[in-house]
């Protein structure tokens, strides 16, 4: 940079360098030196922070991708020293249990969100619901499993896909509820007022104006909830347990991808460890899909 660009000029256009001090910072001055150091440090930290992500993705693609084939989706987990095999039953189990969780958590979460966001935001009930939703969103996932064990597994005397689904729904519910509440509350007041002005009842306003307008954000919450539930393993550990066979009903122990990874990760057989990596890849793909879906749905339209 030339000196003439940075030095101010007098009215006549001449540079009076003698009376104006040089305000530029010297590169080797202590303060600028520290600033450069700080910038380099931040770049370094960001680079180190990126290592784990790329390492995880690299391992998933090389180790898991190597085993990717149709067999994985159609065959049962192998026992002991057996070669080959897949985890078709675990994929089915994960889908069924996430489905059960959706059936419970989605209607409950949306209705609860409508209550706290639009129907009666200032009522005592709404305040308590909001509080419980927030507490539940910070709930350690293993406690959902402990609770479901004490309630359903002991009660029904069997490990089951139903219990697994219920445990997952406890983790999904606060996500759906809190995002639905926010989405519903974000609908501009003038839209609601216009509907009331037309003579709509409270319910008509909510069903015909508020819910359609907030639908994309609510779907975002549901997608995030599904992504969370699909990846969870702690709540399934002693509610759905695991099974080496195809699923026959909701009331029996059921396999899931995450528990398969957990079980196989500690086995001394290379075949099982390869399968664990392949299952991780499939699981991460499922979770990322729903995550990205939520992002696309949640993108502002205007």
């Amino acid at each position: 940079m030339g000196a003439s660009e940075t030095l101010p000029m007098t009215a006549t256009g001449e540079i009076n360098a003698a009376i104006i001090p040089d305000l530029r910072r010297k590169r080797m001055e202590r303060r600028s030196f520290l600033d450069t150091l700080f910038t380099l440090g931040l770049w370094g930290i960001a680079a180190i922070g990126a290592i784990p992500l790329f390492s995880v993705l690299y391992m998933l693609i090389t180790k898991g991708g190597a085993r990717l084939s149709l067999d994985l989706f159609t065959q049962l987990p192998p026992a002991g020293f057996m070669q080959g095999g897949g985890f078709g039953n675990a994929i089915v189990g994960t889908i069924v249990m996430v489905g059960v969780a959706c059936v419970i958590a989605v209607p409950l979460g949306i209705c609860g969100g409508v209550l706290t966001g639009a129907m009666a935001p200032k009522s005592k009930t709404a305040k308590v619901v909001r509080f419980i939703g927030k507490v539940m969103s910070g709930f350690p996932s293993i406690l959902a499993g402990v609770f479901t064990y004490a309630w359903l597994v002991v009660g029904l005397k069997t490990y089951s896909a139903l219990a697994g689904g219920v445990a997952l729904s406890i983790l999904m519910l606060p996500i759906v509820l809190l995002t639905a509440e926010q989405a519903v509350a974000m609908v501009p007041k003038r839209m609601k007022d216009a509907a009331y002005g037309m003579g709509c009842t409270h319910t008509q306003v909510i069903l015909k104006v508020v819910l359609p307008a907030s639908l994309p954000s609510i779907l975002t919450g549901i997608m995030l909830g599904i992504a969370r539930a699909a990846g969870e393993s702690a709540p399934l550990l002693f509610t759905a347990l695991f099974s080496n066979y195809w699923m026959r009903g909701l009331m029996e122990p059921t396999a899931s991808l995450s528990i398969l990874i957990y079980n196989f990760s500690g086995m001394p057989f290379p075949n099982q460890i390869e399968l664990a990596w392949a299952a991780s890849l499939v699981l991460v793909l499922i979770v990322f899909t729903f995550n990205i879906l939520s992002r696309i749905l949640g993108r502002p339209k205007y």
């Binding site: 391992m59 992504a227 990846g231 995450s258 990874i261 460890i273 664990a276 991780s280 699981l283 990322f288």
Partner: peptide
Amino acid sequence: LLAAIPSVVYGLWGIYV
């Protein structure tokens, strides 16, 4: 995306990496 990776997958990565 780092936040979305399931806990078990991190566990597996931890054991082998």
